[in-house]
Design a protein around this nucleic acid. Structure first.
Lengths: 235, 235
DNA sequence: GCATTTTTTGGGATATCGTTCATTTTTGGG
DNA sequence: CCCAAAAATGAACGATATCCCAAAAAATGC
């Protein structure tokens, strides 16, 4: 009966029961959403995977959408935080982009359910995943200001780049591409941005130390829930 | 009671009743799939939209997946056929790519439900939409052989380009981009392929006459169904 | 107009969906 | 160890899902 705990449940091991159950529901939600997509997922399936009574779900979340955005928010913030931390010493925008892309792909590849969930839910819940694009955007305008990116940056371009990176992630997850996926797509993007080819290639393929996956960020422990007569949706 | 007929139903107006109801089911399927996605769509909803008894569905299709691949196959073949026809006089691979991309996006924009259906079902039914990538692939290797594309072509690259084009289509459909979407993404792709910038820009933005939407290709009229005791799935 | 084949119909069997809520179990402080 | 608060439970609701099939309706050939 010693179930292997998911990332959220592991992180919540030291918290009170409510938080622990909530975490198990979130891990289960990731699994189901990754497998069936947002529209195809069902609350019943989530509680089945979480090994929890159906009524328990509604103690913690209002409905399917609520748990999806809660999980998405955590995934997005955990990912961007970790990648940011791993990049504190990088200033050059080109290098930052390449590193972030590679780290992101290898990261999601190491936690495939998170990766699949992102791929399957991002189109359905665009604004929940907006922070990732925003992050990307700010790094790119930095590069523009540094004079390294000749191309003008706007929403359309960021959208395009995001699509390229997620396509690379999809290829990586389905096994069509190996660990070089991040480098390949980096180089393609940089070339597209009219970065000089030698530099694009050098930066994209330079060996780099990717961080270990260390997830999720331990949530702030709160002694007791203050009020909350009914489930809270967003974290 | 004079319902406006969808593209399939219109094309099947002159055929026997079986073909006509089948066509109405397909139009309804497009509408529902575009709105709810593959996982979220239900047979019940399709028959409701088609204004047909639920039992009728199973006379024509085995299940949801069967009708989805049938519709997808028709959409893909109709689209590629029409675009091919409009390109018969174009030899230059660069120009072909740019034209096809622009035509494709404006096309799907003129028939938004088809566009949305492609966007929402392509990830779930990759092989049904493979022909589009294959088409793209062959045009690109042609350009490679013509010496116009310095970049090597492989599945990963085609995947990436396809993702870029569909992202542009999505932006166009949701109103985030105007008619320039096709040109913009064309130029980006060509730049990525290391086509000289001036040429990329010239080809991508040169005014071009896009064909009228003329759909779907009238299906070959067959006097009578020969046998088929139970529904056929693929066309 | 009639008989035969083709096609559609709609209700029924069965399963699962989301959701609520009265009840039971677990938790933790004194 | 006991008791109040917190949390989890699972039976039960109506809605909706898929799929089947005997019967009705429509189309077709003579």
């Amino acid at each position: 009966m010693t179930m292997t705990l998911g990332p959220f449940a592991t992180a919540a091991r030291q918290q009170n029961k409510s938080a622990r159950t909530r975490a198990r529901l979130m891990d289960a939600a990731v699994e189901v959403l990754a497998r069936d997509g947002f529209e195809g997922a069902s609350v019943n399936e989530i509680v089945r995977v979480a090994d929890v009574a159906n009524g328990t779900f509604y103690v913690h979340f209002r409905d399917k959408e609520a748990i999806t955005v809660a999980v998405s928010a955590r995934i997005v913030s955990d990912l961007t935080d970790q990648i940011d931390q791993a990049m504190t010493d990088l200033d050059d925008a080109i290098e930052r982009f390449s590193f972030a892309t590679r780290q992101f792909i290898e990261f999601a590849h190491g936690l495939p359910q998170w990766g699949w969930m992102i791929l399957r839910c991002a189109p359905a819940l665009r604004d929940a995943y907006q922070p990732m694009e925003t992050h990307l955007f700010s790094d790119l305008v930095r590069g523009r200001r540094q004079g390294q990116i000749p191309q003008d940056i706007d929403a359309f371009l960021v959208d395009t780049i995001f699509a390229m990176v997620t396509a690379a992630l999809a290829a990586r997850l389905r096994g069509a591409a190996g660990p070089e996926a991040g480098s390949r797509v980096s180089e393609l993007v940089l070339t597209m941005l009219k970065v000089p080819p030698e530099r694009a290639q050098e930066v994209a393929w330079r060996p780099v130390e990717l961080r270990e996956i260390h997830l999720p960020v331990l949530p702030k422990v709160r002694a007791q829930r203050p009020v909350a007569p009914l489930a809270a949706d967003a974290d």
